[in-house]
Design a protein around this nucleic acid. Structure first.
Lengths: 190, 190
DNA sequence: CTTGGCATGTAACTGGTTACATGATTGG
DNA sequence: CCAATCATGTAACCAGTTACATGCCAAG
């Protein structure tokens, strides 16, 4: 149940149309909650029907831009949702499934399979690179928006600190992935 | 597309019925890929139809146990899938959405909202505890199965090292969550 | 006035969740 | 033989993905 609330958050920050939201999702909330434009349009329709947002234009016209804004009931819903206790979501990662599968295949193979092991190492190295790139990007954002004496709008305010905490979570994950990949590559060296 | 392969992996390790798989998912592959028994039954039916696994009993009888085993085509499919290049999945976490929502609400609030800030801190502390517990659990597994001179079946073999790498990923994530939560709690102190 | 791209939308499907139903097996 | 539990299954729904269709608008 996060998508509607992610949309409410983004609209609260700045009203806009479905296409604008889709773009914004590609470069802010989308870093930790993704959505395609189809999901966004569907969700906007539901949010309007539930009376949590309102669009300027009365009727939906295909092709014509339609701006949405959060109305008080929507803000109340967002406040309610953020105050709820929600358990952490368990990890769900395909690479780990693949490693476990590789382990089981290995165990059932009589001879050492060097070709397979090489593919695995290459894949780990590739993931290390991708996570390293994402990490560098997050660090650049941090330097730009959150460093002492930066251009940030309102440094030191509670909301500024919260935004920073979210970014730091991203940094932490990427760092963890990078060092895990390095460590794993070392233990799998030929 | 990970669930069918997670099931193939589990069945390759040890053939079994849908219910047994559901139990095993609760305590091994399920640590990084969850599935309910309904998903598992649905997927077992598809895998059998695709000719990747085979059940002992000819027909499905409601209530009667049905054991499945991977057949060669299933092993081939698993080998194919593990050799594929797959990009890392982007982070998707509701807590981070909630923090961002809280930041936006804060920014729009005139006076500091101490009640809301307290709820947030309590939630962060709760998550820290839960992640700490999961971390301790993983560490206990590591000590039991992977420590030098442990009771592990085949220490030092490639599959043993892969299994360990998967476990270390879990440890790393939980550690990252715990230290992030601690850091964030410090910056949000009243 | 037409073409390209922007904005919105429909349709069909897959994956995951929740609620519930029913047959088989076993311990008392 | 009956209740509890195990094992399998159906149904309906929600979330996410992919492919495609259509209307608007502005630049050339």
């Amino acid at each position: 149940m996060s998508l509607p609330h992610a949309i409410l958050t983004s609209l609260l920050e700045k009203p806009g149309s479905g296409a604008e939201l889709a773009q914004r999702f590609d470069k802010s909330i989308g870093y930790f909650w993704q959505a395609t434009h189809q999901q966004i349009y569907r969700e906007l329709a539901r949010l309007e029907e539930r009376g949590l947002i309102r669009s300027a234009a009365r009727e939906a016209t295909r092709g014509r831009k339609r701006d949405f804004a959060v109305i008080p009931a929507g803000l109340a819903e967002l406040e309610r949702w953020t105050s709820l206790a929600q358990d952490p979501q368990p990890v769900r990662d395909a690479l780990l499934v693949r490693l476990r599968a590789a382990a089981v295949i290995q165990a059932g193979t009589v001879q050492a399979d060097t070709a397979r092991a090489g593919i695995l190492r290459a894949e780990l190295a590739r993931h290390r690179e991708l996570h390293q790139r994402q990490l560098s990007f997050y660090q650049a954002v941090e330097a730009h928006d959150f460093a002492a004496g930066s251009e940030a709008r309102a440094p030191g305010t509670p909301d500024h600190r919260l935004q920073h905490a979210v970014l730091r979570a991203g940094i932490m994950f990427e760092r963890a992935w990078v060092s895990w990949a390095e460590e794993t590559l070392r233990t799998l060296e030929p």
